[in-house]
Each structure stands twice: as structure tokens, then as C-alpha cells.
Simulated assay, not measured.
Amino acid sequence: MLLTLSLLLSCQLIGEVAARSLGLPIPGPVLGLVLLATALRVAPSLADSLRPTVTVILAHLSLMFVPAGVGVIGNLGILSEDWLALLVVLVSSTVLAMVVAVGTFLGVRRLTETRST
């Protein structure tokens, strides 16, 4: 378990250091995830050793939302002042994400249909 946790946290740390030191516009944890995915692609046997610990972590993933909930409760004053702007941003970003997802799907479908014919 310690090896798995140290590998996961090391990937995140390396990604964070790379993002901050190189001034990249990508969050460090995303770079760490890419590093982990690359490591799993290069060494597929690594997935078998990570699976037991990762399964336990994923089973308790809901605990990760507790700090976010505490943050929301801690900032209720800001939320009560700017609720309309936050609502507009949340709705518009959700709609935009859905439109982009549909557009991407349609584009990939067109590409795969033209290649198969």
C-alpha cells in the first residue's frame, strides 16, 4: 500500500513541479496523471500491483468531497452575494461543455465513417 501511495503522490509531485517550474498552463495533477498513464502503458504489470490499493481508494472516493463541501459552507457569504453570477457561469459552462462534447463526437464519427468506407 505504501508503494502505491508513494507512486501516486510522486507522479502528482513531479507534475506539480514541472507545471510550476516550466510555467505551463496545465495543472500539475493533470501532468502527474499523464505521467502515471505513461508508466502504466510502458509497464502493464504495474497496474496489477496498484489495483488492490487503488480499488480501496476508489471505494472511499466520496470522502474526497468533504473538504469541498466544507469550503462551500465556509464561503456562504460570497455565495450569497454573487449567486446570480455563479449561476450564470455554471449553467453557461455546462452548456458549452455539452456542445463541445457533441461537436467532438460528431467530428470523430465523421472521421471514422470516412475511413471505414
Rank of each mutant, 00 (worst) to 15 (best):
L90R: 07
E16G: 06
L63V: 14
V88Q: 15
A39M: 00
G103T: 10
T38V: 09
V108Q: 09
L33H: 00
L31E: 03
V91S: 05
A59Y: 02
S80V: 06
C11T: 14
L106F: 08
L86K: 11
P29H: 10
L58Q: 01
L46W: 04
V108S: 04
M1D: 08
L58N: 01
L96P: 03
L90F: 13
S80I: 05
L36K: 03
R41D: 02
F105L: 07
S116M: 09
E113M: 10
T112H: 04
L22I: 07
L87W: 10
V91E: 04
G107R: 11
E81D: 15
V95S: 02
G32W: 05
A19I: 09
L36I: 04
G74C: 00
A19L: 12
G32S: 06
V54A: 01
S6I: 03
G15A: 10
T53Y: 00
V66M: 02
A47Q: 08
L111F: 11
S6A: 01
L63E: 14
I14D: 04
L87E: 05
G77K: 13
L35Y: 07
V34Q: 07
T114M: 07
A68V: 15
S6M: 04
L90S: 11
F105E: 04
A97K: 07
V17P: 01
M98H: 02
L84R: 06
F65I: 10
M1S: 11
S10C: 09
S62L: 02
A97S: 11
G77E: 13
M1Y: 08
F65H: 08
T53S: 06
I78F: 12
L3Q: 02
G77A: 15
S49R: 14
D48F: 13
T117R: 06
V88F: 12
W83P: 03
L35D: 05
V30C: 00
S49W: 15
Q12D: 08
G23K: 09
L7C: 03
G71Y: 15
F105I: 03
P25N: 01
A39I: 02
A97Y: 06
G74T: 00
L8Q: 05
L63D: 13
T94C: 01
R51T: 05
Q12N: 08
P29I: 14
L106H: 09
L86A: 13
N75W: 06
H60A: 01
L90A: 14
T104P: 02
L3M: 03
V91L: 13
V70R: 12
T94D: 02
L36C: 03
L8W: 02
P25F: 01
P27Q: 10
S92A: 11
